[in-house]
C-alpha cells in the first residue's frame, strides 16, 4: 500500500509514516468506537456487543442474599431422572442463557423442545429426553457462608414432542 512505501527501505530508524487522511480515518473510527463503548457503560446495555457494557459479575451480592439458579431436570426414555448439563458439551445452551430468557420460556414452554433436540443431536446414543422440568433452586447464605439449605421450585414442564437421536432403539 502506498502509505507503507518507505523513503529509504534500508534505514530502519526512519519511520514509515501514515498519510494525514489515513490518520484521520483511524482516529475517527477510534472516536466512534470509544463513544459507543462509553455510552454503553453509562447507560448499561449488552445489546451493543462487542462494545457493550463491561458488566460481567458487576452486580454485588449482599452477604445474606440467597443464591438463585435455574436448572432443567429430564426424564429419559429409559425412565431415568437426570439433571440436564446446561453447558457447551451438554446441550450447547448454557444456564445463563436459559436464565437470560426465562420470561420467554415461561411464556412459551415449547422452547424447551430445543433442549431435547440439542441433546439428541449431540448425544445420539444416550437415552432421549421425554419430559423436561424447569426448576429454580434457592441456596441460602449467612454472612457470606452457605448454610446448606436449598429450596427447589418448579417453574414449568414440557413433554417432548419429537423423536431425536438414535437412542430410541432401547425405548420402553
Amino acid at each position: 500500500m502506498s502509505e507503507n512505501i518507505p523513503a529509504q527501505p534500508q534505514d530502519p530508524d526512519r519511520p514509515l509514516t501514515l498519510a494525514r487522511h489515513h490518520k484521520v480515518t483511524r482516529l475517527l473510527a477510534t472516536a466512534i468506537a470509544l463513544t459507543i463503548l462509553t455510552i454503553a457503560q453509562i447507560n448499561p446495555t449488552n445489546d451493543w456487543f462487542p462494545l457493550g457494557s463491561l458488566s460481567q459479575y458487576s452486580y454485588g451480592r449482599p452477604l445474606d442474599s440467597p443464591t438463585r439458579a435455574v436448572r432443567i431436570m429430564a426424564t429419559t426414555q429409559t425412565g431415568d431422572e437426570i439433571r440436564v448439563p446446561l453447558n457447551q458439551q451438554g446441550v450447547g445452551i448454557g444456564r445463563a442463557e436459559i436464565e437470560g430468557q426465562l420470561d420467554r420460556i415461561l411464556a412459551d414452554p415449547s422452547m424447551l423442545e430445543g433442549i431435547a433436540r440439542a441433546w439428541g443431536g449431540l448425544h445420539p446414543h444416550r437415552p432421549a429426553f421425554i419430559e423436561l422440568r424447569l426448576e429454580r433452586t434457592t441456596s441460602y447464605v449467612e454472612n457470606g457462608v452457605p448454610t446448606g439449605q436449598v429450596d427447589v421450585e418448579e417453574l414449568t414442564t414440557w413433554t417432548v414432542q419429537g423423536t431425536y437421536g438414535s437412542g430410541s432403539g432401547d425405548a420402553s
Partner: peptide
C-alpha cells in the same frame, strides 16, 4: 467459544444482538 455448533440444534433460543 465452542457453543456455536451446539447452538445450531436449538435455534429457538437465538436472541440476536444489535449487530
Amino acid at each position: 467459544t465452542n457453543d456455536v455448533i451446539p447452538h445450531g440444534y436449538a435455534p429457538e433460543f437465538y436472541d440476536p444482538l444489535w449487530i
